[in-house]
Structure formats: structure tokens, C-alpha cells
């Protein structure tokens, strides 16, 4: 099965930040892989380390205060964390590209969108003629569903709506046919109806071009709609990993279960019932509990959970859980 071929292997990645309050292990030993042509989700709440993971992959961690302290990021067998700045520049935008959450601040306000999309091409393929760049840009804007692309290439970012700006970002990310696209909360800043459009566009393009995608989001709805594989993150580590159907049908970590049950019911029957909610709050990364990081909030925690950090153990085909009670409870 070609689906088993992986394009990116993250192995035991540790990214630290050195701050006045001490060392913050924002990402603490996570491993996951991205299958070729598939959408892999990184899900979690704010501060769980999902964005730091994506920035580590892109080599965009500000150093200092950040530091990749260990692990490997294997992209087609090459360890990205060992590449020099120059080498990484050649990978970024060409082999791996990224879409950010905020389409307004990610575009340069004083350059036309056509110039900005074309710039990526010019950086990575120096010998292309201007007319060719222009043709490719128009083609790309058309592909991402921007109406009247010939005239829109001359538009400035502020002349476009949020949805169109995010489409421009997608065009910019895809113009060099990257093998991997890292999308960090690509639709969070958009309105619901626009979000639905942009998600559909991303999925259509993904199917058409075959790009692999890492999708970072806090929205379980978006995950269910788009991802093939899911990694649930909590306080810097992955707590559950598996196929999207497994995760939603058979969530095995108490945190995943809690998250899923916290979503206000969209099915319609459960109005006015109390929502399930996870007690307490996410621990501070400078002051992590010694055992399982979720134990202080977990209703099923036992004594052993407070003592040692559980390993990621398999509970089914390609389904892993970091919980001491995974096998007995479910």
C-alpha cells in the first residue's frame, strides 16, 4: 500500500524555551509521522505545543530563546533539524510550505498579492521569465478560487476580504508544488461560511495535487471533516494517536474523551443539559506534575498515574494511547 509511505517522520522531538521563569519544554519528546498524500492533524488546546511543533518542522523557532534540544525531523530521510539556515531556506516554500492563522498579518500590506505569490516562485526558480511567473500566478489564483484573477493580481491585501486573503496564502503556499503543507489554524480567523469554503478548497486541492498536509487546529469539527490521522496533544506531549475514525469512535485517553464530550451537542437532543467539562486547567509547563500530565484533572486517575509518566501504548491497529489505564478500562 502506497498509503503507508511516509513523507515526514518526527522522532522524539524536544523543543525548549529558555525564559526567566526557567526552561519551558513546549514540545517534550513527541513522535509522529505524516503519510504521503494524507492529512495529519495535530489537535489540542492553547499551550499544548502544537504550533511549536509546526514551527520546529519549518525551522522557524526563534533561537534564542527557543532551542530544538533533541530528536529528529526526517523529511524524506533528511533530518531538517540538522540543516543549516541556507539549506533550510531552500526547503522552505519549495518542499514544505506553511499557511498561518492570520491572513491579514501574514501578507505584506505594501506589495500586491500578485507580486507576493510570484516572489515565492522567483526565489526558488531563478531563471523563470516574468511573463511565465505572471501566467503561473494567475493560474494559481484561479485554482484557489479567486474570482477575476487577472485583475486581482494587482490588488493589495487590504482590498481583499479575509477569505480571499487566506486563499492568496494558500496560492502562495502551493505555487511551488510543495510535498508537504503545514497549515496552522488556517480557518480559525474566518467566518463559518467562509471557513467551510476554504476547508473544501484545501481538501479538493489536496486530492488533486496529492500534497501531504499537517493540519494544526483546536477545532475537533475541522479535524473530523478533514484529517486522516490524528495526534491529540496535551501539555507538550502526544496523548493519543491514531486513525481519525478510531479517535472519534473509540477515544481511549480520558482527555480525548473529555474534549469530545465538552463540545456542545450539535445533534440537537441534548439542549439545556449540563455539558461535560474537564475540571481544572492545563498545568503550567514550568511546573509539570511528575506523573501523567493529565492526572490532576483526570477522573480516573489512580495513585500510579501521579508517579510515573505513562508510555504511548498500542490499544488497537495503529492506535496509541499514553495512559496507564488504557488497556484495562476500555
Amino acid at each position: 500500500m502506497s498509503a503507508q509511505e511516509t513523507i515526514l517522520d518526527v522522532k522524539n522531538l524536544r523543543t525548549l524555551f529558555l525564559t526567566r521563569k526557567g526552561i519551558v519544554p513546549a514540545v517534550d519528546g513527541i513522535s509522529f509521522s505524516v503519510r504521503k498524500g494524507k492529512v495529519t492533524g495535530l489537535v489540542g488546546e492553547s499551550g499544548c505545543g502544537k504550533s511549536v511543533t509546526s514551527l520546529s518542522i519549518m525551522g522557524l523557532i526563534p533561537q534564542p530563546p527557543g532551542k530544538i534540544a533533541g530528536g529528529e525531523i526526517l523529511f524524506e530521510g533528511r533530518d531538517l533539524s540538522k540543516l543549516s539556515y541556507k539549506e533550510m531556506c531552500r526547503v522552505r516554500g519549495k518542499d514544505i510550505s506553511m499557511i498561518f492563522q492570520e491572513p491579514m498579518t501574514s501578507l505584506n500590506p505594501v506589495k500586491t498579492v500578485g507580486y507576493q505569490v510570484g516572489e515565492v516562485l522567483r526565489i526558488h526558480q531563478r531563471d523563470v521569465a516574468d511573463a511565465e511567473v505572471r501566467r503561473r500566478v494567475v493560474e494559481m489564483l484561479d485554482l484557489v478560487g479567486i474570482p477575476e484573477p487577472e485583475s486581482r493580481v494587482r490588488a493589495f491585501p487590504h482590498q481583499l476580504s479575509g477569505g480571499l486573503r487566506q486563499r492568496v496564502m494558500i496560492a502562495m503556499a502551493l505555487i511551488c508544488d510543495p510535498k508537504l503543507l503545514v497549515a496552522d489554524e488556517p480557518t480559525t480567523a474566518l467566518d463559518v461560511t467562509i471557513q467551510a469554503q476554504v476547508l473544501k478548497l484545501m481538501m479538493d486541492l489536496q486530492r488533486r495535487i496529492g500534497t501531504s498536509i499537517i493540519l494544526i487546529t483546536h477545532d475537533l469539527g475541522v479535524v473530523a471533516e478533514t484529517c486522516d490521522d490524528v495526534n491529540v496533544m496535551y501539555a507538550g506531549s502526544i496523548v493519543e494517536q491514531g486513525d481519525v475514525f478510531n479517535i472519534f469512535r473509540n477515544p481511549s485517553h480520558p482527555y480525548t474523551r473529555g474534549l469530545l464530550r465538552s463540545i456542545p451537542d450539535t445533534g440537537g437532543t441534548g439542549r439545556k443539559e449540563r455539558l461535560f467539562s474537564i475540571d481544572g486547567m492545563v498545568p503550567s509547563l514550568t511546573d509539570l506534575p511528575p506523573g501523567c500530565r493529565f492526572a490532576p484533572r483526570c477522573t480516573q486517575a489512580r495513585e500510579s498515574c501521579f508517579k510515573e509518566m505513562p508510555e504511548l501504548v498500542p490499544v488497537g491497529e495503529g492506535h496509541f494511547v499514553r495512559c496507564n489505564r488504557a488497556r484495562e478500562a476500555c
Binding site: 480571499l164 467566518d191 461560511t193 467551510a196 473544501k200 469539527g221 475541522v222 475514525f245
Partner: peptide
């Protein structure tokens, strides 16, 4: 109708449902 339909559904088994999408921008 379209607003309700646009909200993502946290259930992967429904991902292949027919999607109602609004055209254009606000």
C-alpha cells in the same frame, strides 16, 4: 440554512455528506 450547514461536524463518518456551500463573500 446555509449557516447551519457550514458548521463543521465533529463526526468523521459524516464527512462525505453533501455539503451546502455559499458562494462568494459577505
Amino acid at each position: 440554512k446555509f449557516l447551519i450547514a457550514a458548521a463543521p461536524v465533529p463526526d468523521p463518518t459524516q464527512r462525505d455528506r453533501e455539503r451546502l456551500l455559499l458562494k462568494g463573500d459577505i
